[in-house]
Design a protein around this nucleic acid. Structure first.
Lengths: 106, 106
DNA sequence: TATATGCGCAACTTTTTGGTTTCGCAAATT
DNA sequence: AATTTGCGAAACCAAAAAGTTGCGCATATA
């Protein structure tokens, strides 16, 4: 089983769950009500999200509140870093071109 | 078929291909040599990447050079935006806490 | 022109997923 | 104490994905 963060966000329902619990903790039943699926299906998604530590649990009596481990999202950001460098470089190159054109006009 | 960018980056081989062709265009054979898979398997990955417009082709004779459509990567960045807001807010809240502590000392 | 090479495409096989159903346990409610 | 409710876990199923094999076509090379 791969079960890394990229695999976790591949599924649209999982992405929706992530957004949903980003701001406030919710129980599996609460979450399921927001979608067109069963509690069990949500539960499975939550397990996957838990396995890659994207989500944390907080048990209160028989209710289990799930919330987003926001720091984990930074891993995606970190991976994007290398591309951000490239697109910023390209942008700078464009700057250079514009600068050259500008200078040539003088 | 889902075939969106999140599904595209879910596969580790595909992520490796993306990194590989980010800086220089390569043919399917070139790419396959970097991994422990066949050209056909790479070809399939490239097709998926092409379908979600993450990759562009440049035919030169019988060779087809693939390179990354770097702008498409910004879509992931865009999705992350909403979480970046949250983690920056949390950071600011932490700042507030520290500030409060500091002020109380006075 | 004959042969070799690079490629995409389609058919097929094997894993992996996402979902449902069913179960048992623990916490609430009656 | 009996019943209901919220939950995870396991067994099962259908659909999708990843990889392999075997084409056929076009472009090089001999």
């Amino acid at each position: 089983m791969r079960r890394d963060i990229f695999q976790a966000i591949a599924d649209p329902t999982r992405r929706a769950i992530i957004v949903l619990i980003a701001l406030q903790a919710m129980t599996p039943n609460d979450i399921a009500e927001h979608f067109d699926t069963s509690r069990q299906a949500v539960s499975k998604h939550l397990r996957i999200l838990t396995e890659c530590e994207l989500v944390k649990q907080d048990q209160q009596g028989r209710n289990i509140y799930y919330s987003l481990e926001i720091d984990k999202m930074k891993e995606i950001d970190k991976w994007l870093e290398q591309f951000r460098k490239i697109w910023e470089t390209r942008f700078n190159q464009l700057d250079d071109v514009l600068l050259t054109i500008k200078n040539n006009k003088k």
